[in-house]
């Protein structure tokens, strides 16, 4: 049974704009006719440009915001009607803002959360021990939160969101501003939690490496509409984003002429060409080798960034 179900969910806002003394009101649909479901244990990357409707969706899924149309069920309940009840079964991490107590040691925040969520003490201790171990928090427990680095604080925030064994965790930009090592450690931890506890994870991010490392499923939205829903590989092959061919020639030449490919950049004897994903590279190579002094070459696959950019542009 699906843990999250949306049927034809919409959310409209009235926007008042002022030009001089005149005020105009118009309706903006931040989310428009969204339908999808998430199975327990899925890790879904939820991506889209700023203002696409990502945070509006998350707010509706957590019960903060009431949808203006359609139905939502999360963990079997309507989030907006049973917000407080649902709150015990979900965990939320806001990337830029901590929900920990700023002036107190990290462990104090954990202690108050145990009481707030009525976690049985034995279970709390067990969870805490696990997270301290996995997130390397031992030396941080007695440090006031304001003295923690961004990465340390994020680890604290993630542990805090998971202490009450939530069935679903929403992570909003969990790796924003972190260094490469912290990012890797965090991803590893999330993958482990998902594998061992079957926690459903919904991840909004701009960092596509997060998606690559963690997500079994990707959903792309733009202007309140789903424009893609599937696996990461599916996303890549869904778009005929151009592949790139880099050739090194024996001499610096003017842009070479090849059927089915175009030069986008020249860099001394090195020239960059693009060609569509659905065509084979072999005939191109043959043609270049026959007509030009070819020294070396490489073919690169489209990056997720370029795939998604193209998706936004065509949608």
């Amino acid at each position: 049974m699906a843990v999250i179900e949306l049927a034809d969910v919409s959310r409209a806002f009235t926007v008042t704009s002022r030009s001089g003394w005149r005020r105009t009101r118009r309706e903006v649909r931040a989310v428009d006719g969204m339908t999808f479901s998430v199975e327990p244990g899925e890790v879904m990357g939820y991506i889209g440009p700023n203002g696409a409707g990502k945070s509006t969706t998350i707010k509706m899924l957590t019960g903060i915001l009431v949808p203006s149309g359609g139905t939502i069920r999360v963990a079997g309940v309507d989030p907006s009607r049973h917000r407080l009840k649902l709150a015990r079964r979900i965990g939320v991490v806001f990337g830029q803002r901590t929900t920990l107590w700023w002036d107190l040691p990290l462990k104090d925040s954990f202690a108050v959360l145990q009481k707030m969520y009525d976690v049985p003490l034995a279970r709390h201790r067990e969870n805490l021990a696990t997270f301290v171990e996995l997130l390397d928090l031992r030396d941080l427990l007695d440090v006031p939160v304001r003295q923690l680095s961004l990465g340390q604080r994020m680890r604290g925030d993630i542990a805090a969101a998971l202490l009450h064994d939530p069935e679903i965790v929403y992570l909003d930009e969990p790796t924003i501003g972190l260094d490469v090592i912290s990012k890797a450690r965090l991803r590893e931890f999330l993958a482990q939690v998902n594998a061992e506890r079957r926690t459903t994870i919904i991840l909004t991010t701009h960092d596509l490496d997060d998606i690559e490392a963690l997500c079994t499923r990707v959903m792309v939205i733009d202007h309140g509409h789903q424009i893609f829903d599937g696996t990461l590989d599916g996303l890549k092959s869904s778009q005929s984003a151009p592949r790139t061919l880099v050739v090194d020639l024996a001499a610096t030449l003017p842009p070479i002429q090849v059927t089915g490919a175009t030069v986008i950049k020249t860099d001394g004897p090195r020239q960059h060409l693009t060609f569509p994903t659905n065509t084979s590279a072999a005939p191109l190579l043959a043609e270049i080798a026959a007509n030009y002094p070819l020294v070396d070459l490489s073919v690169s696959e489209p990056t997720i960034e370029s795939v998604i950019t193209q998706l936004y542009n065509t949608a």
């Binding site: 903060i64 917000r83 009840k85 969520y117």
Partner: peptide, 9 residues
């Protein structure tokens, strides 16, 4: 918004 995701009114 952070208040509204907690199980406390």
């Amino acid at each position: 918004d952070a208040y509204l995701i907690r199980p406390v009114p």
